[in-house]
């Protein structure tokens, strides 16, 4: 995998970096918590894509298996955190009728 030359691995690694940027943008900008959870998942998959791309050793001999194993572990951990965040969000909506943390967006999420 040549560092500077434009080949698949570098392409995917840079895509991962831009995905992280997009995810960070979403995580900061949105007040609705479900969108922030979605942005969190985009950042996570961006980090993992970069991790795998940096471990890619040319066509034919595949990606370094250790990052692959760590990424599978990371995906399951990200799912667990997302599931808890979603459960907390639904409970917050049931208790206080809002889907945001008030400091950012005082308005209640009105019906769609």
């Amino acid at each position: 995998m040549s560092g500077a030359g434009l080949d698949s691995a570098t392409l995917f690694a840079l895509t991962g970096a831009i995905l992280i940027g997009i995810g960070v943008y979403g995580f900061i900008v949105h007040a609705h918590l479900l969108r922030r959870i979605l942005a969190f998942n985009v950042i996570g998959s961006g980090i993992f894509l970069m991790f795998g791309a940096l471990g890619f050793r040319g066509a034919g001999n595949g990606t370094d298996p250790v990052p692959q194993a760590l990424i599978i572990t990371g995906i399951v951990v990200a799912l667990s955190l997302t599931a808890l965040a979603v459960a907390l969000l639904v409970k917050l909506a049931e208790e206080e009728g809002g889907a945001t943390l008030p400091e950012e967006q005082p308005g209640r999420g009105e019906a769609e």
Partner: peptide
């Protein structure tokens, strides 16, 4: 989650 929030009327801002 979206469906649950829709029932509670908080699925959008």
């Amino acid at each position: 989650a979206w469906s649950m929030l829709k029932q509670l009327g908080v699925s959008g801002l």
